[in-house]
Design a binder for these strands. Structure first.
Lengths: 148, 148
DNA sequence: ATTTAGTCTATAAATTCTATAGACTAAATA
DNA sequence: TATTTAGTCTATAGAATTTATAGACTAAAT
């Protein structure tokens, strides 16, 4: 399961993507917008900042904003920071490999084999889904004709 | 993350698949084979039995065995019983749909969109991975030439 | 100086995961 | 039919993780 932490983080970051270029957004605004406990969200944004996905500005006129363009930040990156590896078992993680405690022999582990496939498919999707891309799919440009 | 429950359950069930047709296997044997706490494994197997994946026989010469052929039981079925839906958020589950508590509008939820893709990819893999198939991949027939 | 708003540490409440204990029931067989 | 074997069921406990909340502190703006 995706934790609330990741869910909240993603919601916030998607808003920051919408607002990109218009200056910092208040934690309070982000929290209100999606009814996220403010203090919890603060911790989440801080973690994203520490990992380089966000930047912030203190004091009046402060708030959070994306470190990179919305088209250069993926859902996979956000989830990895907040929930850890995408892989369902540590021994198939690309970014945080670990031997499973109880594992006898990785080469003959069927579970590992199946989970590897799942991890790869998941990573392929989430590492190619950018904030910009996602927002575009969900908030399509109004009526009007498509730009040429 | 896959819980130990699912991991243990899958390991047990893969052994039962190997032993299929040779009569019931003792819980103790399954537990020993993979160093699984016996009482915990009992609970797991019972749950799989309740969901119709396993059958059991009490008394001397008893034990557990698969309800169907190893080629007719999938990893997806086992995981759903033990860990619940494959979907990372309830609103994209096919087998156990639920509205997300904090969700405003599903149609404009980017997270849902991304998670739907992941669920579908995961289900496609796990619902097509049978116990027989997995065992075959991992314990390939010895030397000898391939049957014609 | 004052107000605004993010930073950091600590801790608490709730939930879920992992495991264990023990009494009970069904089946086999001697 | 008594005994042994092995699964069934209920209850509960310990550990870990998730989900927050409180409060003191720091940087920036005016």
């Amino acid at each position: 399961m995706l934790t609330k932490k990741s869910k909240y983080g993603l919601k916030a970051v998607l808003v920051l993507a919408e607002e990109a270029g218009r200056g910092p957004v208040l934690v309070s605004d982000l929290a209100d917008r999606h009814r996220i406990p403010k203090k919890f969200l603060e911790a989440i944004l801080l973690e994203l900042k520490r990992h380089g996905l966000l930047q912030s500005k203190k004091g009046k006129g402060g708030g959070y904003f994306l470190s990179r363009k919305p088209s250069e930040i993926t859902v996979g990156q956000v989830i990895r920071v907040l929930d850890g590896p995408l892989a369902l078992i540590p021994c198939v993680s690309q970014t945080a490999y670990m031997k499973c405690e109880e594992c006898g022999d990785e080469k003959t582990c069927g579970i590992r084999l199946a989970m590897k496939e799942v991890r790869d498919a998941t990573a392929k999707i989430l590492d190619n889904t950018t904030l910009a891309g996602l927002n575009a799919k969900v908030h399509p440009p109004r009526k009007g004709r498509r730009r040429i």
